[in-house]
Design a protein around this nucleic acid. Sequence first.
DNA 1: GTGAGGTAGATTGTCAGTCAATATGCGTTT
DNA 2: AAACGCATATTGACTGACAATCTACCTCAC
Lengths: 242, 242
Amino acid sequence: MTVESNRDAVSNPAALQLSPAESVTRRDAVIDQIKRGIVLGTIKPGEKLTESALSTALGVSRPTVREALNQVAQEGLLIHEPYRRLRVADLDAAAVLDMADVRVALDMQAATDIIADTSGSRMKAIDAVWEVYERNALAEDFLVQHESHLAFHRGIWAASGNSFLMRLWPVTAAHMTIALARDQATRQDPQRAYEMHLNLIEAIHSRDLECIHTALVEHTVDSARELVALMSDGSTDRPIRF
Amino acid sequence: MTVESNRDAVSNPAALQLSPAESVTRRDAVIDQIKRGIVLGTIKPGEKLTESALSTALGVSRPTVREALNQVAQEGLLIHEPYRRLRVADLDAAAVLDMADVRVALDMQAATDIIADTSGSRMKAIDAVWEVYERNALAEDFLVQHESHLAFHRGIWAASGNSFLMRLWPVTAAHMTIALARDQATRQDPQRAYEMHLNLIEAIHSRDLECIHTALVEHTVDSARELVALMSDGSTDRPIRF
DNA sequence: GTGAGGTAGATTGTCAGTCAATATGCGTTT
DNA sequence: AAACGCATATTGACTGACAATCTACCTCAC
């Protein structure tokens, strides 16, 4: 029989490091490129973003770009109104705080599931997540920082074993991306983010839900409040809501 | 300055009633048709579902069908593996219970936000949601029942004013659709579902979070457990997981 | 000069047809 | 009877085109 060629990415730990997303289908590759552009600020909120321009820039056909844009828009990174150009989504202050509340609730659910597991395999998964994060969190490249951050939180949900949380992840990740992309504070102080995450991991290890909740609020809600403060400081431009 | 022209749909109350989803774009119409087919069982789990067959059946081109299928797949109703036919998603027992846990957490967040609102406008929104549900919950048409059920839960999240909850809704609704489509118990006893929802509304009115939590668990987790029991009874076919 | 209206351009929505890449199913061979 | 290879079906992706719709500018009347 032809041995189903194991993707090296699975068996090789080194390949688990955030590689530049070699996607199988071309559409997925385009999706990654678009997201990257948004994270790095190459595509700024409000910038005109046309299908044909992207197709020539990325060297793929318009239908492919179109499918990619639709998917990214569905996740929430782009706003897509019929016959109107796509706009990069932006969050107002209320949306940032709303997300923080919900994320605490979902992280608590994940933590509950992790603690409830008596075999210890889920806690071991947490350790693996932390190990990867520790290696990349303080990288110079902001893109690596950002992806490490996302992978960390995704890893917590994954470790919980709750399949529905994984279903909610893409939308959550998209919104975290929007928020973090403009969070200059975190961008300039990755060390602080690192410590907050370490604090969270230690809280999970304590298996004390109240302790975990405190750490989560400190990490998520407080960060959101700071971001909101920065938002009102900076450009009071267009409060694009969606 | 040019006054931003008000959309008539906003100012016209009659247009706000739930119409049978006259979508503007053809793609959205196709999406509705596909979802309808899944809910009604016209498209059964495991059935072969080809782009070309759908395009001829619905009278639209293959690219349009393709975009619709991609979107539905992203919401989770369809499984989409490269070069494999799309399959209707199915939930295994663990997934049903996972979703129930997370939904309780999210509903609790919504309830917290509703109670925290001192103006009473959010509670008033809940009453409006209930009023609509009450009118349609016991309809003969199962499709109407199902959509009323979804609209009820969506309404609770909407009433909370938490924008991020609304972002999580499409994925949640897709999974509820999968679960409810095979829940023959609810299908045969809409009266019981009605009473559970009434119980939940009364709990919210009590403004007692513990009371609300009890009602939610009774509604969501217990229903999930019953569904799981039915699942193991019936066809132990393919436990398509995703 | 200012505002209303219309027209042209640009962009998206949708379609048809085509070719390549890949999985599925059947027949053949050992 | 089991494994292998080939034909077929289906999806992934592209090109080109046309219709529907929005945007911006320009003209004209007051």
